Amino acid sequence: MFSIVLNIVGPLLHLYVAARLYSLDAVRTRVPRRAWWIGAVLVWLLYLAGVHIGDAALDWRWWPGQFALTWLGITFVMSLCLLATDIVGGFGYLARAHTQKLRALGAGAGLLLAAVALFQGMRAPVVTDREVVMQGLPRALDGTVIVAISDIHLGAQRRSAWLAARIEQINALQPAAVLLLGDLVEDDPVGRPLPGEPQLAPTLRGLRAPLGVWAVTGNHEFYGDAETTVAQFREGGVRWLRDQQVELAPGLVLAGIEDVGRRMRKERDYLGGLARTIPAAADSATILMSHIPAPRIIEAASARGVDLMLSGHTHGGQIWPFSYAVQQRFARFAGAYDVDGMLLYVTRGAGSWGPRMRLWQAGEIIRLTLRAPPAALAHADREPAQS
């Protein structure tokens, strides 16, 4: 599907934007027609070269690959704005006296929104704070800080140096545990960095979390060699939960399930991992990590007494108006949701996929402060001191 977007939709967007921009008097009177269209063809050829070279390469091929993805995002945003003004003006037939002004407005709005999207996509992710009341959480763990991050997509766009900056952000939050919610790589394992860039494992070992750094797989891990990626992160001190659960601290359980994307695509039952991981209703405060916020996983987790479920995958739609399409697939696609007493948080993710752009919101890192229920705190306060 994405191949169709790159090879067919992308060139059509490019052609549409080029034609509309050249219809503006301010452009047409200053740039000869032949020069404009020769330039447009050269940009189109560079775009196609980038598409077929690919954006995963970490050598000179990175530049045309990244240009192609960025240009696709820019022309998409500009096409939205230009199409809106075309519709208002009847494509130049209904409001001919205002066609130039409308198209100039559309072009200006498109450039502005593309700049905003690039800024939001390239800036550091913001920190989202949330307090979570967990039934059964011991009083001793009240105030425990958990930091979660998803969809970092290490690869051509983001490398170990970018990850090192995110680790500084995370460490500043003083987490007891760090949770990595999948899609940690773009597709292939990160491999050897470019000259002058830090190695992955020493970078990961910079994370400071007394209760550990834990991860689950996402769909992108399986687009490449998932086992190599798992080994690379394990070398950096990351512990994986692949249909497993552990006791983070007395009275607090952390569970993680293997990515269910492949089973969902084949319309097969994908609850087996959750059933193996949490076979019965949880009697301890429980956190579940599941990369994809699949509806059946959400409902089953809530029925099993999970207190907090953390997911990513959706990117919050990443570039508006794709958020509406994502919401058709995942009704709970970004932010916090109460599901029969279970808190589900679907993060927008810290990175991006495809164009390094976000419209409207930047990526995020989640800081969760765990709270014992008020009744438990009150009961503990009433307990007599032991001599």
Rank of each mutant, 00 (worst) to 15 (best):
G256E: 05
S23V: 01
R61E: 05
H98L: 12
G196N: 10
Q318R: 11
P202H: 10
Y223F: 15
R33K: 14
G349E: 04
A107C: 14
L94P: 00
H220R: 12
M289T: 08
S23L: 00
E186V: 01
E197T: 07
G312A: 10
A107L: 10
R263T: 08
E131T: 02
G196L: 11
V126T: 09
I149F: 02
I8K: 08
V213A: 12
R371F: 02
A18T: 08
M1H: 14
E299L: 12
V238P: 11
M78V: 08
I298Q: 04
V116A: 07
G349C: 10
T29F: 00
A26V: 15
D243H: 03
P384L: 11
L377K: 06
R166N: 01
R103K: 11
A376K: 00
V9L: 15
A385H: 09
A280P: 00
D243R: 04
L58E: 13
V116W: 07
V238R: 09
A215S: 14
G39A: 12
H291Q: 12
E131D: 13
G218W: 13
D259L: 12
L184K: 08
L179Y: 02
L207W: 03
Q328E: 09
L254E: 07
A285F: 04
F322L: 14
E227M: 13
I8L: 15
V216C: 06
D340A: 14
L111C: 15
L24V: 01
F67E: 06
R348W: 02
A140L: 01
R304Y: 01
L181G: 09
P374A: 13
A35K: 05
S284C: 03
V346G: 04
T70I: 08
R20K: 14
D55C: 08
L12A: 15
L179G: 02
A172L: 06
I87R: 01
L6R: 11
I4C: 10
E258R: 10
P125M: 06
L141S: 04
A325D: 02
H315D: 12
A19V: 04
D86S: 10
L13F: 15
M1E: 13
Y337R: 01
S311P: 09
M122Q: 15
R242W: 07
P32A: 06
V17R: 07
D151L: 11
I53H: 05
E168D: 14
G218F: 13
R296Y: 07
S284Y: 01
A376E: 11
V346F: 04
R30T: 04
R242V: 14
A300P: 01
D259W: 12
A281F: 05
K266M: 15
L83I: 14
C81G: 01
R242G: 06
H52D: 09
A177G: 07
A176G: 03
R159P: 00
P202I: 12
V253E: 02
Y47D: 06
L241E: 03
T217S: 15
A275T: 09
R20A: 05
A95C: 06
M357I: 09
T228E: 13
Y93V: 07
S284H: 12
E168T: 14
D151W: 09
L200F: 03
E383Q: 15
W360A: 08
Q174K: 12
I366R: 00
G351F: 06
V127F: 08
G273S: 10
